[in-house]
């Protein structure tokens, strides 16, 4: 598979560093199954030609992904996916996704706009996070959200 599986979009107004955006978009693609084990990530040249960001930014993002054990770089060949983040629940034909699609239809029928839906989902996630935090009785940290996500994924796997 050539490096045309994903395309990165860099939002310069977001205030999120470009390397973080690349890492997050890669992780999301891995979670959604858009990227699979063996796929080649776009080369730094391809990313840079499409987004006009600093090539060192791409190298840094790929290094972070490599340290996380998600990809490996093979000298002269490129950067390849070594581990998938796809959860059984996140695939196109999963029951969770079908439930969500049906719910979105109901929300639309009730007259909710895209932003209303996103706000509802965010609020529900926040409430769930808070509940988990309260259970753990731990102080709030920056990395907490990410850890919680990982915990939730772990719980899903265990279930």
């Amino acid at each position: 598979m050539e490096g045309d599986v994903v395309e990165y979009r860099i939002d310069r107004q977001s205030g999120i560093p470009a390397y973080v955006q690349i890492v997050r978009q890669t992780e999301q693609a891995l979670r959604m199954g858009v990227l699979r084990v063996g796929d080649k990530l776009p080369t730094a040249r391809e990313v840079v030609a499409a987004t006009a960001i600093n090539p060192n930014t791409v190298f840094r993002a790929y290094r972070d992904l490599e340290q996380a054990g998600l990809v490996t770089s093979r000298r002269g060949l490129g950067t390849f996916v070594t581990r998938s983040l796809a959860r059984p629940g996140a695939e196109d034909d999963s029951p969770l996704r079908a439930d969500l699609a049906a719910w979105v239809e109901r929300a639309r029928a009730a007259g909710l706009e895209r932003d209303d839906v996103l706000a509802l989902v965010t609020a529900a996630l926040d409430a769930s996070d808070e509940e988990h935090t309260a259970q753990k009785q731990r102080p709030q940290h920056k990395q907490e959200q990410q850890e919680q996500q990982e915990q939730q994924q772990q719980q899903q796997e265990d279930a």
Partner: peptide, 14 residues
């Protein structure tokens, strides 16, 4: 502007 910057970054990547 975007195109010119992309050209420069591509050179720097290579």
């Amino acid at each position: 502007r975007g195109e010119v910057m992309a050209t420069l970054m591509t050179e720097a990547a290579e």
